[in-house]
Amino acid sequence: MALSLTINGEVFASRRDPMTPLIDVLREDLALTGAKAVCREGFCGACMVLIDGRPAVSCLTPIALAEGRDIRTIEGLGRDGEPTPLQQALEAQDVVQCGMCFPGMVVTLTAFLAAEPGATRDEIKRALVGNICRCTGYERIIDAALVCAAGARD
């Protein structure tokens, strides 16, 4: 039996084993390669997507648990090819290095800043506990998130 997955507003039928990690369907079947399968353990956050608006590690989400829910990947965040204000802030502040962690960082921060537009530096750090970056040292990512949050408040 096929499972019905709603990804970035489009409905897909998947005939995969219901215990297949969502990340594999995204990358291998739908060519949505923004989310990365790095640790497959829930530790690094590189595979983060939004499920019903909340950050979820797609490496530990069997598609059976994603059926009928609103799945949004990094590819589905911008509008009409325009980067989001957060993506623009990250680019403007020249934060990105190798970029491996960034789709996951953006997904986590998008949901977090929407819920907590007045977040402090410490709160942003706590929100990013499940997103690991090997390159940047984090501080500039948080600077950009704070700039973005301040922009949204003004």
């Binding site: 829930g42 530790f43 956050g45 983060m48 909340r54 950050p55 979820a56 590690v57 530990l60 989400t61 986590t108 706590r126 929100a127 506990v129 499940g130």
Partner: peptide, 9 residues
Amino acid sequence: AANPAVREV
């Protein structure tokens, strides 16, 4: 425990 995304599920 864990991290925010894991605590959600």
